[in-house]
Design a binder for these strands. Structure first.
Lengths: 220, 220
DNA sequence: ACCTGAACACCGTTCAAGT
DNA sequence: ACCTGAACACCGTTCAAGT
C-alpha cells in the first residue's frame, strides 16, 4: 500500500491527537465549504469553522489574513473546477465551433445547477477579492478565451455572420449564460414562467435559442 | 400654504425633540438606504441605523420583525422605482414593438448603472424575502408582462420570426439584460474586454446586438 | 402605542503568552 | 512555527420595564 504523505512530506498519521493540527488550512477550507453548502456562503463564519475543527477562534488567522481571504481561496478552488468542467464539456475539434460554444455554455449551466454552493461562491463578489486573485481571474480568463476562439472559428467557417464583432458576440454569450445561472440562483426563474423542475430544460433551451439566432440563416 | 401633515394626520412639527419619534419606520428606511449607499447592502446594520437616528437598538424591531424585513421593504421601494423607470423609457405606441423592447432593456440597464445601490438591493436575493413580498413580485411581473407583450406584437408585425416561442424569447431577453447588469455590479465586465468608462456603451451595444439577432432578416 | 435598558448568544480580529 | 486565551468592538434579537 502506498504511504500517505502530508503536504510537508512527513509520514505522521493525520488522525493523531495533540499535534498542532498539521493541515489547518485545508481543514478550514473544507469546513467553510460545508458551512456554505448548509446555509449559503454569506453565513460562513470563521469562528464556526474553527469550532467544528476543534481549534481556537484565533487559529484561522494564522492561515488567512481575514475572512475574505478564506472565501477567496474557496472561490479559487471552485473557479478551477468550473474551468475544467467547461473545457471537458466542449469536446474536441471533430465538432463545429458553434456546437462547441453551445456545449461550453451547457457545461457552465449544468455545473452551476449541480454545484449551487460552488457557483454561489464564485459569483459572490461581495465576499471575495476578485481583483486580488490571479488564480480566479485566470480561470475566468480561460473561459472567455475559449468563447472568443469558438466565435472566431464560427465566423471563419461561415456559421456566424462576420458582420458582428467577436468581443460583442462573446459578451452577449457570457451575459446570457451568467444571467441564466444567476436567475436560477437568485430564484427568479419562477417569476419568468419556468415551472418548478423545468429549470434545466428552460436554461438549455434559452441557450439553444441564442445559438440559433447567432447561426447564419440560409444564404440570401 | 397647505398644511403639512404627518402620516397620522397630526399637525405636530416633525423636528420637535422629546417625542416618540413620529415616523421611525420612514427614518429607518432612509438610514438603511444611506448605509447601503456607503458600504453596500450586505453591511447595513439595524443597530447602526438606529444609532444614526438616535434611537435605542431595540426600537427598530417595533417596525420590522427582523433585519430581512427592513431590507425587503427597501427592495420594494427600489423595485417600484425600477418598474416606473422601465415603463417611462419605453415610450408609446408610435414606436415599433422591437424598438420599445430595446428601450425597455436600455432603461433597465441605465437605471442599474445610475442607481447601483438600489439595483444591488433588488438583486440581493440572500438579504431579502422575495417570496414573501407581493409588491416586489408585482414590480418584476409587470416588467415581464411588458417584455412578452412587445415580443408578441413584434411577431404579429413580422419583426421577429414567429417560429420562436414568446416565453423563450422573453427569458433570453431577461437573462441578457439581467446578466449584463449583474456583470457590471459584480465587476466582471473588465474581465470580458470592456475598458473602464466604456461600461455603458458596451452594455447597450450588447443589448442592441441581441435585438439585431432577433430581428428577422430580409425575407428569403 | 412606542421606546429604553439590559441581557444573550453570537461575530471578526488582535495580541500577548504558551508549546 | 503554530496555537490558545482573553479581550475589544461589534452584531441581531428578546423582554421586562418605562412614558
Amino acid at each position: 500500500m502506498a504511504k500517505l504523505k502530508t503536504e510537508r512530506g512527513t509520514d505522521k498519521a493525520v488522525s493523531a491527537r495533540g499535534y498542532h493540527h498539521g493541515n489547518l488550512r485545508r481543514a478550514l477550507l473544507e469546513a467553510a465549504l460545508e458551512l456554505a453548502q448548509q446555509h449559503g456562503p454569506e453565513r460562513v463564519s470563521v469562528r464556526e469553522a474553527a469550532r467544528q475543527i476543534g481549534v481556537s477562534p484565533a487559529a484561522p488567522f494564522r492561515h488567512f489574513p481575514n475572512r475574505r481571504a478564506l472565501m477567496t481561496a474557496l472561490a479559487e478552488e471552485a473557479g478551477e473546477r468550473l474551468r475544467i468542467e467547461v473545457r471537458k464539456s466542449m469536446g474536441g475539434r471533430e465538432r463545429s465551433p458553434l456546437q462547441r460554444l453551445r456545449l461550453l455554455g451547457r457545461g457552465y449551466l449544468q455545473w452551476a445547477m449541480r454545484h449551487p454552493s460552488h457557483f454561489k461562491i464564485v459569483s459572490a463578489r461581495d465576499q471575495i477579492d476578485l481583483e486580488g486573485s490571479i488564480a480566479l481571474r485566470a480561470s475566468i480568463g480561460e473561459v472567455r478565451a475559449l468563447t472568443e476562439q469558438m466565435l472566431t472559428e464560427a465566423q471563419q467557417q461561415g456559421q456566424v455572420d462576420a458582420a458582428h464583432r467577436v468581443p460583442a458576440l462573446a459578451l452577449l454569450s457570457r451575459a446570457t449564460v451568467y444571467g441564466l445561472a444567476r436567475m436560477h440562483q437568485d430564484g427568479h426563474l419562477g417569476q419568468w414562467g419556468v415551472a418548478a423542475g423545468e429549470e434545466a430544460v428552460a436554461m438549455t433551451d434559452t441557450l439553444d435559442l441564442l445559438i440559433a439566432l447567432m447561426r447564419r440563416g440560409p444564404a440570401v
